[in-house]
Amino acid sequence: MTERVAYAYAVLRAVEGLGTVLEGVEGVAGAPVRLLPEGSGGALAAAVSSVPARDFEEDALRRHLEDLDWLEAVARAHHGVIEALGARTTVLPMRLATVYLDDGRVEAMLRAEADEFSRTLRRLAGHLEWGVKIYVEPQPDTQATGASSAVAGTADGLSPGRAYLRARRSQRHSRDESYRAARQAAERVEAIGRALAAGHARHRVQQGELAAGAGENVVNDAYLLSRDAAAEFRTRVLDAGQDLPGVRIDVTGPWAPYSFAAPPDARSPAPDHAPDRAPDRAPDRAP
């Protein structure tokens, strides 16, 4: 028989009907999801699945984290469980690929950190996370523009070399203007967040294969918003870049509060594995 470990998705406030919510929900590796209560009569529970231990041992997991297809499949399953539960109760998402040796270790973690979890759940009740990304957009066909400028410069009586240098300066100036506009957009968004959001978290900008769409990602932030404030926040943030050329603002969400569910401190039984490199935010493209 394949050895199994307990994959933890989230800690949540136990409410009536959660078992029904999980019917038909497939977790990581297609495993069914179950709820482990904090204890007899406890208000907390953890959502877990039994997954093959061999896939989550340290060496195996390190290899898996280099496999974007595997990582995406796990992230989508992880996120799907959290979204299903988040529709009915407040959840504290666990870091992707957090596993414990068995259910007993998960239950011990719940008991040890019950007070801290309860405080965090009260703080997050009625709130969801929204992502804000700001991009510096590539200028349309800069090479062709540079060539045209060089030709124009030659026609103005400049040597080809001087005409080329003038064109390059013009391109750099345009790009610098776009970065200044992006900084202005970021300042506007942060001001909106201060007025409407209950929390603000900064994340590393996305690069390489993680970057979606055209342009350079220069801001990748998350905001915690009450359900009542979310619509106004989204509208105002999207309007913040309308008059700024070379800038694009994307707003994603709502998500469960991934960026605001602080992990328990070191007093609780630590997970048997939760890799530092695993992403701890919602995927940008929900399943």
Rank of each mutant, 00 (worst) to 15 (best):
R169K: 11
R119G: 05
A222C: 12
L110M: 04
G39M: 05
E38Q: 05
E16M: 01
I192L: 04
T2M: 11
V151H: 15
E129N: 04
R267S: 12
E16T: 11
Y258F: 12
H78Y: 02
A144E: 13
E137P: 07
E72S: 10
R166I: 09
M109D: 10
V189T: 07
R105K: 12
G19M: 08
D176S: 13
L68A: 13
T89K: 12
L121M: 10
E177H: 09
D103A: 14
D239V: 04
R122M: 06
L101K: 07
A198H: 12
A240K: 01
S118L: 04
A97G: 10
E116A: 06
P287T: 00
V11E: 06
R123C: 05
R54Q: 10
V28H: 08
A155D: 09
R122W: 02
R123T: 11
P52D: 03
I192G: 02
G208V: 02
S178N: 10
E232M: 09
R62N: 14
A147W: 10
T20Y: 14
A14V: 07
D156E: 15
R166S: 14
V189M: 05
L36H: 06
T120M: 06
H64A: 14
S268Q: 07
G193Y: 12
R236H: 11
G246P: 07
A77N: 01
D284Y: 15
A266L: 11
R162T: 09
R236D: 12
E187Q: 10
D265I: 01
E66F: 15
A46H: 03
L22C: 03
Q139C: 08
A53E: 06
A163Q: 00
I192H: 11
A112L: 09
R172Q: 15
R123K: 10
V218Q: 08
